[in-house]
Write a protein that binds this DNA or RNA. Structure first.
Lengths: 122, 122
DNA sequence: GCGTATTGACTACGTCTGTAATCTTGTGAG
DNA sequence: CTCACAAGATTACAGACGTAGTCAATACGC
């Protein structure tokens, strides 16, 4: 659970966060074809994620069905915090300031964030 | 320049973004002691960063002085975008929404972000 | 002048990652 | 009953990463 999930592993997690449980072949079918992974690669990822405790599996006849053992939200929270700590001294507003400066904030973003903040204060 | 900068390498970059140019020993002296790095380790990082084009060096007698070849802002922008793309479909407001939900937003953050947004709209 | 400490260059080595290939065993088609 | 195929288990292997150690040259203290 505390182990880091690598980039390639993350791709597998995303599939299972969208739909679970799934068998290995089904996961492979749902991986972005742009990655060009063989089923072997997907199986390796599944084993490693099992070993890391990020997945659990149940038997289903001669195969396994896999499902996430950690919530996507927790994963996202950990990764976000990591970035904040490493780049912005841990607080959020410098991140927003940075994005604003770099024109990464669309008008839509701005409107949505304002709405969010208003919500928060009420 | 397009090469990824690893965690350990990043620690060296931060030192040089704060002050440059510096010799290897000076960099080592400024690395957070909590890392417990030997001067050898720092030198390895400097070589790798040179090879990656993230640093340049100039001769200074029998040693080198190192300085960043990439701007911290560009690095931060790349890493931020990476997170946004991987976790939030590339747009900013879901990130802020997520942080808000997870209580990662302090009152101070909220105030600062509001000020930023006001600035942006004017 | 001579030994010592320092510098950069090169080498090392275990772990993690990405990307599979091979082995073993069970099962379903005929 | 037999045999090829599919599932999981095990093994492979190169490159990146973290963390140094060793080597050759050289400048400085004495």
């Amino acid at each position: 659970m505390t182990e880091r999930i690598s980039d390639a592993e993350h791709a597998v997690m995303e599939v299972l966060w969208r739909q679970a449980p799934l068998g290995a072949q089904e996961v492979a079918d749902r991986i972005d074809p742009e990655r060009g992974w063989s089923i072997r690669t997907v199986k390796t990822m599944l084993s490693r994620l099992l070993a890391k405790g990020a997945l659990v599996h149940e038997e289903d006849g001669r195969r396994y069905l896999y499902r996430p053992a950690i919530a996507r939200d927790d994963f996202v929270a950990r990764e976000s915090r990591r970035l904040l700590d490493r780049m912005f001294g841990g607080s959020v507003s410098p991140l927003v300031a940075h994005l604003a400066e770099r024109d990464s904030l669309t008008d839509e973003d701005i409107a949505e964030i304002e709405a969010l903040l208003k919500e928060l204060k009420s």
